[in-house]
Design a protein around this nucleic acid. Structure first.
Length: 912
RNA sequence: GGGCGAUUAGCUCAGCGGUUAGAGCGCUCGCCUCACACGCGAGAGGCCAAAGGUUCAAAUCCUUUAUCGCCCACCA
């Protein structure tokens, strides 16, 4: 049989094939009736109209690693994919598209037509995410794919809205909200970014009514809002202004008399101690206005211009108005001064437009009572939030939670299920909140009902995601089996937007936690440390990266850098390193297959190697004796499995990645393959058969170990293994276990000694500049066990140390020249070409070593001589230290002897 | 104004009480060894930001400081 394996690793050749295969074969379709413990995870739904960015790639890599890992360990696994309609983002995209491509103002298009256009756009580009996810081979169940704005999930949204309304948690109220004049909608507090910007404090003189000379000077950062002033406030105990309380001032430019009120809200030390009050444009002023029964004058239009209430300033853009007002005040002599002032300015998360605080009637959700159980669940550990500092962040935010602005003045989203029976339409004023569209008013039978024009915040439907996608409120099989979900993995940037709300809504409606744990991963940043952003052009396109380096390499790279708690700065170096690793795996496989063909050509049936039980019985022995290298290798496998399992169980992806990297490259390629090479083609058939069996069992295990990290490559190679032909997927195989019979401390120590011997020889060779020349060498040790181990592995040591022969001596090396090296356990000498040694360089090197050792020994002696240390430190530490000290002393002695020898040699050379 | 994180080899980062502080890349030297030059072998390179403290023992815990970054916050 012949296996096809290309000379160079080319991910493009293999990835698309398996990506398609996995989807077509529905390999990852979940079955609620299947056995095994449950591992379920829902995707953080990406925005439907977008494309994957590198942050998603990280998200999905971590999710997929854990999903594949659990699946291979026998879990009943569900990874549920889907997308979010992303109200404001998507609407913005389509609005812009209409402007750019068709020069149409969406408002002129009308609601129905616009929404139709968005759906069209969604159909057209909405498949991008799914396409990309399939392309990068995520092991999700496509038959369960969901969309937040589908009829199915929209019904859940209505159900939840109506229930919350009926419970009195949703209400409609007029208050100060964050308004984005660019997106033309209200925003929740979370959607407003704060940025410190240098600005000014304008000091404006308001003439006191009835006095020609007296002024009350106010200080403001937003002079244009004075058009809507309805009072000036001072602190009631402020001696400077006490006498003015109850009087009026004349509002400049508007010539309106407004009262001076006393209110404790005013901070006497800030500004002038007198505050202009604009109840329609500032939250504090709004509150104060209510206390003092002040009128609310909104002076702004939706798109940030001054409205009719602004008199002559009407129609001016808000910033133009500011400038003109300041100029006019200056002209009137009412501008006392301008001082510099840095203020935190609110910006729209989406458009980065300056947000306008503005009075408006909106739907809100009361959060306090929802937050309480959500705090409790995290405090008592029902939901684990990892890393720990995010847990604290969550709790702090939850404890200070404020009501959630639910309504949005958008057209793309879940329309609020509220109808008004307007009096002006002959109705009774009834408000109808309903799961189904009402045909007429239940109160007065009026059929001319008007539905609330607004839609819900996108995060409202996202907040239901873990249970809405599983069929709630129906008691479906999926819901019963997979809810609560096992885990949520997402970026910490949406902890409040999404995670917190899922916890609150989940607990409220399902009476269960939506997930048992939340792992918040780092963000991928640009080289400059900034958050990547597509609009700034600093984003990385994962698809381009995957094409360039291979999906497996990108996945591996991300995983290897994903240490909890710190952000990731992706570098080309690391990506190249990961690609090299993939190439290394590929070539290790090539080695196996190419040589296996040679083996087959020698007339041997590979049935034995291919037998399915090979894996279970490895490592095989020869005449009942397992070769040391195989014992060692499988012991390393067991160690690696334990490290990886432990790492993944604790979301330490980088540790898992590092462990498999080291195991495959260092242990498997550098040592194991190199060591068994001659055995594979040995004339001794029994010997070669054992070597082949162990090699294939080892490689097959390594592939399964690697599979969650690098699914494509491992799938491809696994199918080419002789013992695996015909099987469906490595992904459905089992994950390697750290089998008890593999653990072998003696083998680790023995082969470790062999490795150290070879490495010492190689170092010596390099120092002697022997290049490729084969030479004889001597090995000496006082320990008979050490001697025996080296003797038993002589062939390998001679081969990998590029020797002609190695003499194993009891005790010390014989007198004589040449290059020498010692460790605590043994001495090595290469007698050949003694003159090639750079005596000076070696002396310098050794003196440095002696220096270091002397200090080290002194330190240890000091510590061991310390009575407090001896009485307090654990026994293990003391014994370890003593053993190390003994070793160091031996090393030091050997170095000192060597120095004497070299000094003699140096003298001789100088004389000669 | 609060809170959090970072500061470790030339670069990017691990390690977070215990025995000569690690990796990848880069660098130096030697190798195209019949799987791989996306490679093999050998090396150089670090008073773990600074100062105090706790401890038998500190890169690791505590305090303060400095620099950088992030999040939260209705003082006009």
């Amino acid at each position: 049989m012949s296996r096809e394996i290309a000379k160079a690793y080319d991910p493009q050749q293999i990835e698309p094939r398996w990506a398609e295969y996995w989807v077509k074969e529905e390999l990852f379709k979940a079955d609620p009736n299947a056995p095994g413990p449950v591992f379920s995870i829902v995707i953080p739904p990406p925005n439907v109209t977008g494309s994957l960015h590198i942050g998603h790639m990280l998200d999905h890599t971590e999710i997929d690693i854990l999903t594949r890992w659990h699946r291979m360990r026998g879990y009943n696994t569900l990874y549920l994919p889907g997308t979010d309609h992303a109200g404001i983002s998507t609407q913005r995209v389509v609005v812009r598209k209409l402007e750019d491509e068709e020069q149409i103002d969406y408002r002129l298009l009308g609601r129905d037509e616009f929404v139709k256009r968005v759906w069209q756009w969604k159909e057209q580009s909405g498949g991008t995410i799914q396409q990309q996810m399939k392309q990068i081979g995520e092991s999700c169940d496509w038959s369960r794919e969901k969309f937040t704005l589908s009829p199915e999930l929209s019904a859940v949204v209505r159900e939840v809205f109506v229930r919350l309304y009926e419970e009195g948690l949703i209400y409609r109220e007029k208050r100060i909200v964050n308004w984005c004049p660019e997106c033309l909608t209200v925003l929740s507090d979370l959607e407003v970014l704060h940025e410190d910007r240098p600005g000014h404090l304008w000091h404006i003189k308001y003439p006191v009514a009835g006095s020609a000379t007296e002024f009350l000077t106010v200080a403001t950062t937003r002079p244009e809002t004075m058009l809507g002033d309805t009072a000036v406030a001072v602190h009631p105990e402020d001696e400077r202004y006490q006498h003015l309380i109850g009087k009026n001032v004349v509002l400049p430019l508007m010539d309106r008399e407004i009262p001076i009120v006393g209110d404790e809200m005013v901070a006497r030390e800030f500004g002038t101690g007198a505050v202009k009050i604009t109840p329609a444009h500032d939250p504090n002023d709004f509150e104060l206005g209510r206390r003092h029964n002040l009128a609310q004058i909104d002076v702004m239009t939706d798109d940030g211009h001054i409205n009719m209430n602004g008199g002559v300033y009407a129609d001016l853009d808000r910033f133009a108005a500011r400038k003109k007002i300041v100029d006019d005040l200056r002209a009137l002599g009412l501008l006392e001064k301008i001082t510099d002032h840095v203020s935190a300015i609110g910006l729209c998360e989406r458009s980065h437009t300056v947000v306008e605080p503005r009075i408006s009637t909106q739907w809100f959700c009361r959060m306090k009572s929802l937050a309480e159980p959500a705090i409790e669940a995290v405090e008592n550990g029902s939901i684990a939030i990892i890393p720990d500092n995010r847990r604290t962040e969550y709790l702090n935010w939850m404890r200070n939670i404020r009501d959630w602005t639910l309504s949005r003045q958008l057209w793309w989203g879940h329309r609020i299920p509220v109808w008004y029976c307007h009096r002006m339409l002959g109705g009774c004023g009834e408000i109808i909140v309903s799961r189904v569209d009402p045909v007429n008013c239940p109160n007065c039978r009026n059929a001319k009902l008007e539905q609330d024009p607004d839609v819900l915040d996108t995060w409202f439907s996202s907040g239901l995601w873990p249970f809405s996608t599983l069929g709630w409120p129906e008691d479906t099989a999926d819901y019963r089996k997979y809810y609560p979900t096992s885990l949520l993995i997402t970026g910490y940037d949406i902890l409040f937007f999404w995670v917190a709300r899922m916890i609150m809504l989940g607990l409220h409606f399902t009476k269960q936690v939506p997930f048992r744990a939340v792992y918040l991963h780092s963000l991928v940043r640009t080289a400059g440390g900034e958050k990547m952003s597509k609009s700034k052009g600093t984003g990385l396109d994962p698809v381009a990266l995957n094409n360039q380096y291979g999906t497996d390499a990108v996945r591996f790279c991300l995983a290897s850098m994903a240490a909890p708690g710190t952000d990731i700065v992706l570098s080309e170096d690391r990506l190249l390193g990961a690609r090299s690793f993939a190439n290394k795996i590929w070539n290790a496989a090539r080695f196996l297959f190419v040589n296996l063909e040679k083996f087959e050509q020698s007339g041997v049936s590979i049935e034995e190697i291919a037998a399915p039980e090979v894996r279970e019985k490895a490592p095989y022995g020869l005449g009942g004796k397992i070769p040391i290298v195989d014992r060692w290798f499988f012991a390393r496998m067991a160690e690696t499995v334990e490290t990886v399992n432990d790492a993944l169980a604790n979301y330490r992806f980088h540790e898992g990645a590092q462990a498999v990297y080291q195991f495959f490259w260092g242990d498997f390629c550098d040592w194991y393959i190199e060591w068994v090479k001659p055995d594979l083609l040995s004339e001794d058939r029994a010997k070669s058969l054992v070597a082949w069996k162990n090699l294939f069992a080892g490689f097959e295990g390594a592939l399964r170990l690697l599979h969650p990290f690098m699914p494509f490559l491992t799938e491809e190679l696994w199918h080419q293994l002789p013992q695996k032909s015909g099987a469906k997927s490595i992904a459905l195989g089992t994950y390697p276990e750290a089998r008890a019979e593999w653990k072998d401390a003696a083998a680790l120590a023995e082969f470790g000694l062999v490795q150290e011997t070879i490495q010492t020889l190689r170092t010596l060779r390099a120092e002697m500049k022997l290049d490729k020349k084969k030479v004889g060498a001597e090995f000496a040790s006082a320990d008979v066990k050490v001697q025996a181990t080296v003797q038993a592995n002589l062939d390998g040591i001679v081969r990998l140390g590029l020797l002609t022969e190695l003499k194993v001596l009891d005790g010390k090396l014989a007198e004589g020249g040449g290059g020498k090296k010692s460790t605590a356990q043994f001495d090595l000498r290469i007698p050949y070409v003694a003159e090639a040694i750079d005596v000076g360089a070696e002396l310098a090197r050794i003196r440095k070593e002696i220096d270091r050792l002397t200090k080290d020994i002194a330190g240890k002696e000091g510590q061991l001589g310390n009575e407090t240390f001896r009485s307090r430190a654990p026994e293990k530490i003391i014994q370890g230290l003593e053993a190390t000290l003994a070793e160091r002393r031996v090393e030091l002695r050997k170095f000192q002897e060597r120095v004497k020898e070299l000094e003699k040699q140096e003298e001789k050379e100088e004389k000669g």
